[in-house]
Design a protein around this nucleic acid. Structure first.
Lengths: 197, 197
DNA sequence: CGCTCGTTTGAGAGGACTCAAGGTAGGTGG
DNA sequence: CCACCTACCTTGAGTCCTCTCAAACGAGCG
């Protein structure tokens, strides 16, 4: 989802700096705002009892996040945290709903965007349910390519830990699996930078 | 998502009988229709290389399914199969889009519905990523309660196999975990029927 | 009675996880 | 320019537990 910056401001949206590591909203809290990234990146995640973090999504420039609970009047199930110093626009819920009402194209954008998230979640579920670490990784990388986040033969901008948190594995397992994948010629590791072939 | 039956018919929707086990659409095929359940239940699932089935959703009376790929012009990533003898309405894509255009309330319903699916997927991801079988089961049961599919102290209408396919485990593991949960007093098994306490 | 489908139990193997210890690169400050 | 720090990566050894495979039991039904 993306709403024109000027429109957001017109309806009372406010740009806000968020430092790396700062929390935008957290699990169980009540949604009150619509959020859209102007600069930087926001990580959406949840943690289980053992403290293991599951990254559910990462939003960057131009993308909004956290609408579903806002629209459904339910509490957040996930937390949002800045992965780097970022800027976001914050818009009161009422004003967001007003934009939706008064601009029909916004509704259509929202539909497209939500449909895309459902679609992506389908893939994510298949990755998480897959019992083989190497297949998980390959599917994860394929997904990143589909989403235009990475391209083949260029360094992948994720740490081993981040990959692990995306697909539900431990760092060590990711490292060992990447080694196997390299032997199979599916990825290449050039001084620690991971490349997908 | 739910569209009024008469409206569907007005726009050219056709009711269709689907026998148990019959496929409505399958992975990799091209979406051409909007589907809505009239009677029975449709299972949405995908299978991995090892033939293990992952149930992603089950839709019943009044619910539609399969819109995201339809709206995004992408191929299905999942298959849809009747779990029992069912009746669905099939509506051509163009006509579905026309309904969306000409009935603003439909758009809003669609938004709500998609938001709900994203929300549910968030929970599903947490379940799939959880490494402990017993926690998976408990979270799964809690989700069924939230969705009003089951209530406490009544028999749960799922086979062990179905539960396993929902949460990414093997039947045997589900059975053994249920025994532990019974010992902990969290569920009760009355001649094979599972009850959540 | 004899299918068929779902449930259950046992034994064994494999592999992800855990824990612990080092290694390496890039940045910072003296 | 070098020493140091920190974050990330890597390796090893051992445990645990899910999965696999095989077999059998129970319930419902024609």
């Amino acid at each position: 989802m993306h709403i024109d910056y000027d429109l957001l401001i017109t309806y009372g949206g406010i740009a806000k700096k968020i430092s790396k590591g700062e929390i935008v909203f957290s699990e169980n809290s009540i949604p009150r705002y619509y959020y859209q990234v102007i600069e930087g990146s926001i990580k959406i995640y949840s943690s289980n009892k053992q403290g293991k973090e599951l990254i559910q999504d990462i939003y960057t420039k131009g993308q909004s996040f956290g609408e579903p609970p806002l629209l459904l009047n339910k509490n957040y199930l996930i937390s949002a945290e800045a992965q780097e110093d970022s800027v976001i626009v914050v818009l009161k819920k009422e004003n967001f709903l007003q934009i939706l009402n008064e601009h029909n194209d916004t509704q259509q954008n929202l539909i497209k965007d939500l449909a895309e998230r459902v679609y992506n979640n389908t893939v994510a579920a298949q990755i998480l349910a897959n019992p083989l670490p190497e297949e998980k990784i390959i599917k994860f990388l394929n997904q990143l390519i589909d989403k235009n986040i990475i391209t083949k033969n260029t360094p992948i901008p994720y740490t081993r830990q981040q990959i692990a948190n995306h697909i539900g594995l431990r760092v060590e397992t990711v490292i060992r699996s990447l080694n196997k994948l390299q032997q199979e010629g599916k990825v290449k590791i050039i001084n620690r930078k991971l490349h997908y072939l």
